[in-house]
């Protein structure tokens, strides 16, 4: 009945190093490849079009600036740190339509959840097999709850 088997702290995990792994995109438009600044370095007057959010950053700090952003990169230093899922959904709820990228410790078995909260591009530290990503994304035909991807929950299908 116990379950603290996989529980090393994740908050202070060392960030995954920058890599040249190709970005996996689900967007129709070309990916943004300009410079990305950390939230702390992002000033309101800055004309930067891309910001990186770390797990402890407040995604809502970006809400007044969403119109000027082309890329928001949400970092996952350790896949078990789930704060980035909330960051993503908050940004989509606030109306952000630009590229939302999950970067770092992004693994095959998390990609479907990440798509649901609004990520549309992925920069995994270790490359993902695109065929397996496709299989993972098509495995669940239905979803139980509304999220940021527009898929209708089963209650909408039941009572459509």
């Amino acid at each position: 009945m116990t379950d603290v088997q996989d529980q090393s702290p994740v908050a202070n995990a060392a960030p995954v190093p920058e890599t040249a792994t190709p970005v996996l995109s689900f967007r129709d438009t070309p990916l943004y490849d300009g410079p990305v600044v950390a939230l702390a370095d992002f000033g309101a007057t800055s004309n930067t079009a891309a910001v990186r959010l770390d797990p402890g950053d407040d995604a809502r700090a970006l809400v007044p600036h969403l119109g000027g952003l082309r890329l928001i990169e949400v970092s996952f230093p350790k896949y078990r740190d789930g704060r980035g899922y909330s960051s993503a959904r908050i940004l989509r709820e606030a109306g952000y339509t630009g590229e939302l990228r999950a970067a770092g410790d992004v693994l095959l078995d998390q990609v479907a959840f990440m798509r649901r909260v609004g990520f549309d591009s992925f920069a995994p530290a270790k490359p993902l097999d695109p065929a397996r990503v496709d299989a993972a994304l098509s495995r669940y035909e239905y979803v139980y709850q509304k999220a940021a991807d527009g898929r209708p929950p089963v209650w909408a299908l039941r009572h459509g």
Binding site: D81, G82, Y85, S86, R89, Q110, F113
Partner: peptide
């Protein structure tokens, strides 16, 4: 079940 935001609490 399979809540996308709350699976890595």
């Amino acid at each position: 079940s399979f809540h996308p935001e709350f699976s890595f609490l």
